[in-house]
Nucleic acid binder design. Structure first.
Lengths: 344, 344
DNA sequence: ACTGGCACTCTGGGTCTGACAGTGCCAGGT
DNA sequence: ACCTGGCACTGTCAGACCCAGAGTGCCAGT
């Protein structure tokens, strides 16, 4: 059918215009701006059909049409590509990220960059502990019975925890534990460390065992707990830009973004780890985000023979967002971050 | 003068009512709620005098009066005390904070707690590096020419940085550097470390010197740079609660809060380190915060013979806030955090 | 020094109106 | 079978208008 093609063209035009103007778009404006070679009346028929299918809706009788969540879905899936960035933009990303001095700085710069580029709220997950490996375990005596454990991962992340040992630990034992912990754990994936060190205490003298047990237990606990990973947020001020229909829209979003758990779910629920994932409006499981869309993608170290995803990043914005542009920005930033991480 | 006393009482009543109702308060309502034993007309005279002094103002002719920034200032300085918390509240603080497992957790819990208690935006500065001391420096070889430095402070904070050395470094040299760095730096205040390690490279063999120099330089740089300290933020959703006169009020505040620099200034500009400091409206140097008040206080380790301030925390809210209550909450939280930090 | 009374002024909310934009449908043309 | 022009209909939005209410300032009286 010829009309099916045109209907989709109309949908695309509606989405584009609505995103640009923020106002319901009518049949006349449509034929004027997009040089479809037909009359408004014809468009109206197509619009009626689109509305029938649930892809667009009108706020009230005799207002223009507005895309529904489902309409955006079709737009994203079938009508829009990912808009690649211009070379200058790419250069800007690269130079900005390359200035970072450590992992915190990389993540911090990334989140700010993303917020600024998309003019929306950006979310970046710290590189995952569970998928990365242990580079080194350090054991330090603070006092005879207080030990500090420091774990350093191959992504440059550092975790530390203080342990209260039941019995004092002398320097010799300390060095011993350090050495043996490292032989057991170094190079292992964090998820595998628990198994690797499980039998370690047995190889120590009985009177040393309680202290060693405490340390090992804390180590394992640290790795497990911290795999509830941290996320960084930036650009909340951008939310106020669409503050016309305020607090109803912004308040729940802000609240959602303050909940670590919700954030993690947002990032985690991606269907495909590799490609840019878009969740539109009610597709979000958290109801406060019913009016928001989330665009995410995995990023990670690429290069060691195949890409391995380490964590995710993305942005949160209103359903009426520039999907191609946002997806392009998110994807580009993810690639560059992955590259930076791989280098360090 | 007897009337001077009453005038202040009127000011207090106006502030309290306005904070409670968010609406301009008139002479009639005043005499009804606060049983001042005089007639509205008398109050009106007092109000006229207060307005003369610039302590209150009326939004338009024939509306009630609203406190000015200057009025709040007088209220805070002369009329209001710090409202102590109830014992149950104190217990709640304590148990909540005691559950923390490491420094990040302490700071994270603190900021969330403060936001929740005051129902405003909370800001907590990480315990300062510059005022704290080095507990341990760890030097790790990642590859022969890539070294990772890890600094652990007495507040439990960890900073790490990767160094690219001009020449390869073998394990022996590594151990040597580690040992000597620690003898030089351990126990020193971070600000003094630069001086303490300045001469260190000279004691190494000429061919080792470049590598050692690189490490020392990075170490010093880390300590200096990171003393631009980090701050944590929570409760931005609370801003929407007074969203009546929206974006104009909230937008600049959100923007200000995203700027690390502004945040640091906010916390840093306190006049007195020990006591709760309140900056009201235009007293804030950042103009985006002209409609906001900032309540801050220093916190730190107490106990080692005298209290030493380590960092600051506080909240940001509208000028029309409950000052006594907010000040009480801020002070109480600061005390408990200080105690927790001292213990660990 | 305080009070009651009075005239004045401004805001806020309610209703009403006309202009406007956009639709749905129908009848006619290709 | 599809497109088009025309027309009647419907809802929103902005402006005009008005009234009631709240609050003030001032003055004369106690």
């Amino acid at each position: 059918m010829v009309s099916d093609d045109r209907r989709l063209a109309v949908l695309r035009a509606i989405v584009e215009d609505y995103v640009a103007t923020q106002e319901p778009v009518g049949s006349r404006a449509l034929v004027e701006r997009h040089h479809l070679g037909v009359s408004p009346a014809t468009i109206r028929n197509d619009m009626a059909a689109l509305e029938e299918e649930g892809l667009i809706a009108q706020p009230h009788t005799s207002a223009g049409r507005v895309p529904t969540d489902k309409g955006y879905r079709v737009f994203v899936d079938r009508l829009a590509g990912v808009k690649p960035l211009s070379p200058p933009e790419r250069r800007a990303i690269q130079t900005f990220l390359e200035g970072a001095v450590d992992l915190d700085d990389v993540v911090g710069r990334t989140v700010r960059l993303l917020a600024q580029m998309t003019r929306q709220v950006a979310v970046v997950q710290y590189p995952s502990l569970t998928r990365s490996t242990v580079r080194h375990v350090e054991v330090l005596g603070l006092t005879p019975s207080r030990i500090m454990l420091v774990v350093i991962t191959n992504t440059g992340r550092v975790e530390q925890r203080v342990v209260d040992c039941p019995t004092p630990v002398d320097d010799e034992l300390l060095a011993d534990v350090r050495a043996r912990l490292n032989t057991c754990a170094a190079g292992k994936r964090l998820t595998d460390v628990a198994a690797a060190v499980a039998l370690l205490p047995d190889s120590f003298l009985p009177e040393q065992r309680p202290a060693v047990l405490a340390m090992v237990a804390t180590l394992v606990e640290t790795l497990v707990e911290e795999s509830e990973e941290r996320v960084l947020l930036s650009g909340t001020a951008n939310l106020t830009r669409f503050g016309h229909d305020f607090p109803d829209t912004v308040q729940p979003v802000l609240e959602a973004l303050e909940e670590q758990v919700v954030l993690m779910r947002l990032l985690g629920e991606a269907t495909s780890p590799e490609h840019v994932t878009v969740r539109i409006g009610h597709e979000n499981t958290f109801e406060g985000l019913a009016g928001a869309s989330v665009v995410t993608v995995g990023y990670g170290t690429v290069g060691y023979g195949g890409s391995e995803e380490v964590a995710r990043l993305g942005v949160v914005g209103p359903t009426r967002m520039d999907y191609p542009g946002t997806m392009g920005a998110v994807r580009a930033v993810a690639r560059y971050v992955g590259r930076i991480l791989a280098e360090s």
